[in-house]
Design a protein around this nucleic acid. Structure first.
Lengths: 198, 198, 198, 198
DNA sequence: AATGAATGAGTGTTCATTCAT
DNA sequence: GATGAATGAACACTCATTCAT
């Protein structure tokens, strides 16, 4: 019974598999060094079939960004369960630190994608990457606002900027401990904000 | 007189022009989207001649990194004229903020190069990029050490991480003002360190 | 009532719609630049369903030719109502001139198809195109024969050749007036034949 | 001595060889059915090298048209040696008839190219094809004008139209004799013009 | 009879790199 | 030292055709 999946479902499944594979492989190899065949192989889909779901490589990149955006939404939705906004922010930092090995190997998925896409002349896909980052900024600003801190938008920029900076350095130096140390510093900063606000 | 430049000198000049052009064009377009022809054109050197000076494209990338490293050395050498290490650090921040338009358009030259090169499997060129970043880290650590602050290496990581983070965000969001605001925050942080150190 | 069309009829209808769409789209875009999807879309038939009616693209091309042949038969059948064979020929020329805008934009449907299909190595479909042209030649020869003119077959060739030539030029130069002027010349020629025959 | 061709000459030679091969192969197979590899093979040039001389396939098509234009110029230049304009026109007809086997197999090079290119939406290359046809029209009009015949431009259209029409029919019906018969008729028409002009 | 999905061979084009002179 | 030309291995993308249901 459960085996007899409808074609519809199978098609949607393949699309999702391709998007997930794109997110993964593009994070690992970057946009330009990744071929469609790479993504197709990772998704176990024949190359020719990819185009049935995504008309261009750029659409696959967009799907990968969307995938990252969804994953971010899931994370923040989980954090929203916590009662205290500051605890939410600290929990996010903890999650980043937990993934330090990946960060050291590949950097932040969205951040590195944004860097590569920003080099393009067209300015279409980099806007999509910026949108994902903005989504994180908005969520962080919401937390700072809930904490009644002054200028929550600027605090959000500082917060996300710190994450991107430590991810980039951890990646460039291949040192996951940078995530640990800078994560601790960021947590301390979050704690110190309460005092200032008071 | 001026006409009779020695072949040697002319050759060295071409090499330098190629390296400078590589630094510039690779910063603008990224490694993968830049062709050798792009660099050759920017340096006003025939394509076939490039290989006389650089055996592979990767060597040109390495030369671009070396160019960025040299530029960094020049900057820090200038800053070393200042008597106070904290003033040196603050002056560097000021220089970063001054270049905010470039940062918003293209990001940090070394940082974006490092991100792109880290996606490579070989791990040869990304080490070269890491070396440039490490050079900046070392200089910053020297200043913190001169200020007799505890754990100067960690402070240097925080300092450079902040720069990379704000450059990445300014670039991704195409907002130079992020450089201004985060630069001010970074300067305040540098000032606050004195108190703690005391 | 109108809803309860028999499946048979609906199938035949789809077939006809596909053939008509093929005739139209192939005239507009040519054989090689037209995809099956183009024709399916124009006929409002799902792509996968096309193959139920036509096993290959070539069969669709054949159907388009057949469509043009049918249309030609309808026209000549209409002309056959006229009592005088010469008037029939002149009426055909008038019909061609009337369609001058289409001729200037797309050329003669059969003629342009024949040109494209003649480039093929197989020599299967171009025979089908030739058959349509021959049908026109035969009809024209019949008229010349009915006029008791010498060598009606050669006259038919001259007649059709003039039509193809002026269509090609009108199309290539995008000038519908060529149809008008050459049509007038052709009509005058038809009139002049009577005299010679006497 | 003659063997030591300069690189320059060899490069230009290759370009010419490619253009000639393009003219030939495109005439034989049509634009859409001809691959770059086909042309490269015919010119005995590696595929990758084609792009050193022609940036796109369309440029090769343009070169083929230019080749046909040049060939036409050579022919008309030869005919211009004849003292009588009418003899020139008749000699051209004779040349067409002489090539009847090619016409029956492949049609007029420029005419068939124009037909295929006219199906394109862009309207760039078909203008180039039209230009070649117009060159022939202009030359023919010059002859009619030299004969002091009324409306030489219209006569030129009739003349070229007849050529295109008979080429198309000869090609579609694979009958070279159509060229012979229609050529004779065209010659008679040219002769008859004198009388009328008188 | 109907159709969304699958497939793979093929096409134009790019580009780092090499070569001949 | 210098350079125009050569080369071939990719790669993104297309499309006729087939298949499973």
């Amino acid at each position: 019974m459960t085996d007899s999946v409808k074609p519809r479902a199978r098609g949607a499944d393949k699309r999702r598999r391709l998007a997930a594979a794109a997110a993964q492989v593009l994070h690992e190899q970057g946009v330009e060094r990744t071929t469609l065949a790479d993504i197709a192989r990772a998704a176990d889909v024949p190359v020719g079939n990819v185009y049935y779901y995504f008309k261009t490589k750029d659409e696959l990149v967009r799907a990968a960004l969307s995938e990252h955006s969804t994953r971010l939404d899931e994370i923040t939705a989980g954090l929203d369960e916590l009662p205290d906004p500051r605890e939410r922010l600290k929990a996010l930092v903890a999650a980043w630190v937990e993934r330090r090995e990946v960060a050291a190997r590949l950097g932040c998925p969205t951040g590195t994608l944004a860097v590569e896409l920003d080099k393009r002349a067209d300015g279409v896909l980099d806007a999509a990457a910026a949108a994902v980052i903005r989504r994180l900024l908005d969520w962080a600003a919401d937390q700072f606002r809930a904490l009644a801190l002054p200028d929550p938008d600027a605090l959000a920029v500082t917060f996300v900027s710190a994450y991107q900076g430590m991810s980039l350095l951890a990646n460039a130096l291949r040192d996951p401990e940078i995530m640990t140390r800078e994560g601790a510093r960021l947590t301390a900063w979050l704690d110190s904000l309460e005092a200032r606000a008071g």
